[in-house]
Design a protein around this nucleic acid. Structure first.
Lengths: 183, 183
DNA sequence: TTAAGTGTACAATAATTTTTGTACGAAGGG
DNA sequence: CCCTTCGTACAAAAATTATTGTACACTTAA
């Protein structure tokens, strides 16, 4: 008769349990990358899957509707966590996870930080000229002028921050922080 | 009679409109930093406010309950976007926004990336030994052994990524990417 | 050309998150 | 010491997000 211990168990289900522990950790931490727990879990499953997955495969692994899997796939594609293959399999689209975490890190943050830079600079640069004008108006209360100057000071400081952040993003995109000396 | 144009308007409400445009941009982009639109807006308001704010001030600016402001403050404190002052004002706690975006960037990402590293390494290191054991078992199907080895390969690659990410976080924490040559 | 089946849009439902109201312990002024 | 008021915990309500079911346009195999 077989003893039942953590060491002594059928290897396949045991390996699935071990995988599940890592998948759960991925699902927990992927909130930083804008994925909810379910979508993070799906990425984790795809990370371990050695062959491309179809929506049907995902549906089965996740016990969720195909509809939701379609939605999850779009979201993971948007943040470049997964890729759609050119060729279909039995009429079904196929997807693979990006398994290099450095690449996912780079893809995600270049995307999201660039979005932040763009939105913030449009707002800030759209506001500075008129604020400067107000600050230069003659018939204005002194403390109001001070407030304007204070705002302008903060906004200029922000612009210099976003100049730095743009350089950071460019370097990240160009691989200057690269994980490996050679790839 | 005064003409009404964007140029020709009472300076105080106009400055508030201009501020509001930047505040809205902050609120929009702060989802990357785990803040919802309201909490992001509150940070934006505090960013421009030149004096410390109390919960009551926030409540008035945001038209929201003090209860929710208390919750927002806790959340912004947790991610170090704002700071609580030592001294109270008329029995009320006072808070100020961190106005240096580089500092908020550094605070937030050292915190969140360190959390990711810790969670992921605990999971991965908790799984590798047993997975190695299974891979080394003699009475095991060849393709099952291959699967284990494949998983191990991915996990070791992940460990090396997190070693790199830990260095990255340490450098960020130590100010090696600093915005300014001198502070 | 037809029939079967895929992927997604959209509306409905379920679940979660956000917001509020209330109550209460704690702190501080009188 | 008492009384006011602050800050927050907690439950209820409102709003948003996640998930499902269905329908349908589109593709492709036969």
């Amino acid at each position: 008769m077989r003893r039942i211990t953590t060491q002594d168990q059928e290897p396949v289900p045991r390996r699935n349990e071990l995988r599940a522990q890592v998948i759960e950790a991925i699902a927990q931490t992927m909130d930083l990358y804008g994925a909810n727990h379910s979508f993070g879990k799906l990425y984790g499953i795809m990370f371990f899957e050695d062959k491309p997955m179809t929506l049907e495969d995902m549906k089965d692994h996740m016990n969720m509707s195909k509809s939701n899997m379609s939605y999850a796939v779009r979201s993971l594609l948007d943040s470049k966590m997964i890729t759609k293959l050119e060729e279909k399999k039995e009429r079904k689209d196929q997807y693979v996870a990006e398994t290099d975490f450095f690449t996912t890190f780079r893809n995600f943050f270049t995307l999201k930080l660039q979005r932040e830079i763009d939105i913030m600079l449009v707002a800030i640069n759209g506001v500075i000229p008129e604020l400067s004008e107000i600050a230069l108006t003659e018939d204005i209360a002194d403390d109001e002028r001070q407030e304007c100057l204070q705002d302008l000071y903060k906004l200029r400081h922000a612009v210099s921050y976003y100049t730095w952040l743009q350089e950071f993003v460019d370097q990240l995109r160009d691989g200057d922080f690269s994980n490996q000396v050679t790839d």
